[in-house]
Structure formats: C-alpha cells, structure tokens
Write a protein that binds this DNA or RNA. Sequence first.
DNA 1: ATTTATTAAGAACAAGTGTTCATATTTAAT
DNA 2: ATTAAATATGAACACTTGTTCTTAATAAAT
Lengths: 210, 210
Amino acid sequence: MKKFTGTKLKIFETALKLFAQQGYKATTMRQIAKEIGIQQSAIYNHFKSKEAILDAIIEQLSHSYLINVFENKEPQDVYKKGRGVLKNIANIFKLMTYDTKTDLLFRFLMQELFNNSKLRVFYNEDFYQKNVKKLSAIFFMMMQDEMIESMDPLFLANEFFSPLFFYQLQITRLKADNQSTSAAATLFEKHAEFFWEKIKIKEPKQETLF
Amino acid sequence: MKKFTGTKLKIFETALKLFAQQGYKATTMRQIAKEIGIQQSAIYNHFKSKEAILDAIIEQLSHSYLINVFENKEPQDVYKKGRGVLKNIANIFKLMTYDTKTDLLFRFLMQELFNNSKLRVFYNEDFYQKNVKKLSAIFFMMMQDEMIESMDPLFLANEFFSPLFFYQLQITRLKADNQSTSAAATLFEKHAEFFWEKIKIKEPKQETLF
DNA sequence: ATTTATTAAGAACAAGTGTTCATATTTAAT
DNA sequence: ATTAAATATGAACACTTGTTCTTAATAAAT
C-alpha cells in the first residue's frame, strides 16, 4: 500500500473530501486546486486524470477499516468470547464513525455506490460479503458449542450486521448536517447487547435444594 | 398532488430514471431529451430549469410508498395483531422493491442523500422519523398489553426498522447490476418472524394436571 | 375559419469542464 | 556548482453544460 506525501497527498485528501461531500461528478479540478492553493494544471503532475484520483481513492478503500471489522482475527479464535465478540464488532463500527478518514471513505462509498459498478463490486465482495461470511462462521461455531440457538447462521449474520450498517449511515448523515451524533453512537453497543440477549441460550435455572 | 401527462410526464419519468441511475449532476438535459426523442429546448416548455425537474421529483417522494409504510393506519388500530403487524410492515417493504417507480425513487434518494440537504431533511423527517416513531408507538402499546417484553420502544423500533432498510438497499444495489433479488427478498419476512419470536412474551407453560 | 395559446425545432450563447502545452521555478543528484 | 529531474505556472484548447431566443408547427378556443 503506497502512501502519498506532499502535494500529491493534499490532492488526494482534498479530492476525497470534496467527492464525499458533493459527489465525484460535481467536484471540479479547479475546486480541488483552489482549496489547496495551487494551479489546476499542477494536479496533472501527480495524477494523470480526474479518474485517476477516483481510482486511487477506491484503491484506498481496500485498506481502510471499513473492510477490517474483524481486525484479521479468525472466527475460531474469537467465537468463545460470546457476547464479547459482538460487543467488539459493534465497537469497531463506533470507532469508525469517529475516525474522520474512514467516515469520509464511507460517505464517498455511499455517494457513488449507485453509479459506479466498480464500487458496487467492492462494496459487495470486500465489505458486505466478507464481513457477513465471517460473522456467519462465528455464529455457526457458537451454535455448535450450544452458546446460541441453532438457526441459519448466514441469516443471523445479516440480522446482526444490518443495524450496525444502518446506524453508521445515520451518523454519516447527521454529520453531513453538523448535527449531534452522540445519541446515535450509543446504538451500536445497545444493539450488540440486545442481540446477544435474544440469541443466547439461557442457562437452565439451577433448582435450589433449600 | 398534481399528476403530469404527455410530454411533461415523459420528461419527469426519464429524468427520474436517469437521475437514479447516474445521479443528478451527471445527467444532462440533452440526454433526457434524446431518450424521449425531442429537442433539448423543448423541455423548457414544461420545466423552467433542470432544478425544477429535481424539485418535482422530490415533491413526488412525499407521495410515494416510501413514507407510507403503515398505509395511514393508526397504532392503536393495529398493535393487537402482534406478529401480524410486523409481517405486514415487512411485506410492504418487499412490495416496494417490486414497484419500479418506488424502487427508482429510493435509488434516487440514496444517490443524492449526501449532497442535497433538502433530501436529507425529507429522509429524516418523512421517511425515517415518521416510520420509526409510529413503530415505537406500536411497540409501546404491545408492551402495555404485555404482548412483548418491556424496554425502550424507540430503540426497539430502530432495531426492527434498520434491517428492513438495509435489505431494501441491498435489493436496489442488486437490481443496479441486474442480479437476482429473490434470495434477498425473502429476508423481509424472515426478519419479521425472527424479530417477533425474540421479543414476544412466551405463554407460561400450563402445568398439566396428569 | 380565424385567432390564440401551447409546444416543438434549431441555432446560438455564455459559462464551465477536463486537459495540454510551453515555460518558469524549485528540488535533488552528480 | 552544474546538471537533471520534478513540480509549479498561466494561457489556451476543444468540448460540454444549462439556458435563451426566434421561428415554425400544432392544438384549443372563439
């Protein structure tokens, strides 16, 4: 993963910000240049075209937190923590919304999702499928260990994932209007807690002898 | 609610389709005109500007199924149906994805949400808040009637709403790539079923006498 | 049938678009 | 210090954008 520096980095960051705020098409090269304080033609010393900037941003997406909700941990190494796993995942979603760059990348992703097929492939494979399948594997192991009720693990993964995604979208929207996100930010953890309580297998009440 | 006819209707429909597919900014007046088979200047006999078309579409949103998930039914009239209410709502979401126009409106909404503050206000007030609050009222009544467990009804409403929204988004995305949506479409009902089972208060087991 | 709106066409305009070019300035390497 | 490479400038180009204008065709009203 190549990191940009100097002017090239500034162009990249400014473009990401503007693309996320206004959309790719609505953002002009002059606007990017002006924000940095350089001439528009100077951009072309760093990126061959406007689309090249777009490609660089999409490339960056692959290395962002967005697709690393599990921090590269394997299902069999974490599933035993039960409720803790869910809370941990919820917390990573929460942290993402606090990280300015991840937030911009997410907003950019949502902004361009429906008119960029390359992004849809990324979203589906690297973001949605990857996370849901890993979640599914975790739930499956929990079922085998009789920690949670038995059912379709992939469906369960979708049910757990979707509110997290939705709350993230909500926060991104609120930020776009400079509104407070604190109330929404609590929903991640509440969701994990609520969800676990609903799927866990309750310990059979121990009959008291006296 | 004024309905368009003739050329004006064609312009409206074509613009909605293109805005939903490519975004507002990326769609040109020439493109709209060409698709209909008229001259670009002819559009201006029906709409004063490109933005006027946009406004007309946003206006239409207010009358679409998107904000009428409850079909104008009041909470106190439906909550007693319990599981049936949830299934009904899930079904309306499913039907929305089958309705081409609603699907286009939803895709348009998502496409422009992050660069159009007017749309964000609409999304928040007329789509999100309105539905979640009505849901919340229903859950509250269910709690008072001891049909479901007691907890924060607004949170519960969010938890029920968010997967429906997410599945709708998934289907819209799949359609954009001409992929099959049948598997995703089953998730609405599964969600309602799953959710109800998790929150309903189980009848205490009747002790058999013999 | 004649008048009057309504809608269409076609050309044109002014502004904005991404991009290129020749040239100057700065930075890095020898 | 000199050379070479990288980065900046400012003007220009070719093209697209939304919109307007004049004029012609069509439809509605008298």
